[in-house]
């Protein structure tokens, strides 16, 4: 097992480097001269010679004249030490700029993941147990609708209903402007502002996940050992939760882990719509403003997240189900 984990991690690191190379070259395909961009505001204040001198200096400092592999090596060694370069928009190191959006994104996503799981798992189990009942069938229809509608349409509907028509929640921002109060009051204020985005994120992922939990649970319930368990005279609760759910857990865990990644990518749309200064919103504005150091850093974050997700889902097979031969 340990050998397997080691192998997986080695492999993960390899993939990470390959992807970072691809990313780096991709970004360097873009026409544009960072040195010139940096000096642009000074252009009229400097004499031509001084400008030229400074320009050459900047080119040297930024290493623009080096061949591509050397530039990549410099950038990568910086990244490994936590230095992602400078943001051209914020005129500050990417590492500092990116902290607060990352906090927001992680907070939103973890919160919505918890809510979603708290709803889908019981719902999935319940509909599986009461298979083909009217309740089950209506949930089935709703879930198809749920996963067929893109998250931004759900968001439009929510904004229309809860913010415009009913006026219950604010549409944008994280806090009331100039808010002051105790930590608890601030948390309440934040939650009030996040109610809509969190609701949309949750509703958006309910459909697919519920269907999946239900399918896994039905598979598990149709096994022979369930019949045996019932024949033994075990309580239905025990049959469902100990015997069936344990076995349904395996596919569900895999799905949840791969779903985690997509949630982070999905919150990109939500952040944009509700004007939350999270990673996604940051990423989009970095792309549109051509602040490529920031965009690359965020992209790396997404990739690391994805690779970690893959690793975790592989490992979880082994942990949850000893039958799975991970050492293949």
């Amino acid at each position: 097992m340990i050998k397997y984990v080691g192998k997986r991690i080695m492999y993960m690191i390899l993939v990470f480097f390959i992807m970072s190379i691809a990313l780096f070259f991709l970004y360097n395909l873009i026409p544009g001269d960072p040195a010139r961009a940096e000096l642009e505001p000074l252009r009229n204040k400097l004499t031509a010679e001084e400008y030229q001198y400074r320009y050459q200096l900047a080119r040297e400092r930024l290493g623009l004249d080096d061949p591509m592999p050397i530039r990549y090596a410099k950038w990568m060694s910086g990244v490994l030490q936590g230095d992602f370069g400078m943001s051209s928009i914020y005129k500050a190191p990417v590492r500092e700029v990116i902290v607060s959006p990352m906090k927001i994104t992680v907070f939103i996503n973890i919160f919505s993941i918890i809510i979603t799981l708290a709803i889908t798992i019981p719902l999935g189990i319940f509909t599986a147990v009461k298979k083909n009942s009217i309740f089950d069938k209506s949930v089935q229809v709703l879930t198809i609708v749920g996963y067929s509608i893109p998250v931004f349409i759900i968001a439009l509907l929510f904004i229309y209903l809860f913010a415009v028509r009913l006026g219950w929640f604010p549409v944008s921002g994280l806090n009331t402007p100039n808010f002051s109060g105790t930590a608890w009051e601030e948390f309440k204020d934040t939650m009030y502002h996040l109610a809509l985005p969190l609701g949309v994120l949750t509703v958006g992922s309910l459909g697919g996940l519920t269907r999946y939990v239900r399918a896994a649970m039905i598979d598990a319930l149709s096994m022979d050992y369930i019949r045996t368990a019932r024949a033994k005279g075990l309580k239905e609760r025990v049959v469902i939760f100990s015997h069936a759910w344990r076995n349904a857990l395996l596919p569900v865990i895999t799905l949840i882990i791969s779903w985690l990644m997509s949630v982070f990518a999905g919150s990109l749309v939500i952040e944009r719509m509700f004007n939350l200064k999270g990673m996604g919103d940051f990423y989009i504005s970095a792309l549109t403003n051509q602040d490529y150091n920031v965009a690359m850093a965020i992209q790396l974050f997404y990739i690391i997240l994805a690779l970690l997700g893959n690793l975790l889902s592989d490992l979880s097979y082994g942990v949850v189900d000893p039958r799975v031969r991970v050492n293949k």
Partner: peptide, 25 residues
């Protein structure tokens, strides 16, 4: 399989956005 894993571990939306904004220009 390794290539396929790499592609599937690319976060879809952000990557599509990158390609579209880099090449699209």
């Amino acid at each position: 399989q390794r290539i396929s894993e790499m592609v599937s571990s690319l976060p879809f939306l952000p990557f599509a956005m990158i390609l579209s904004s880099l090449i699209g220009n």
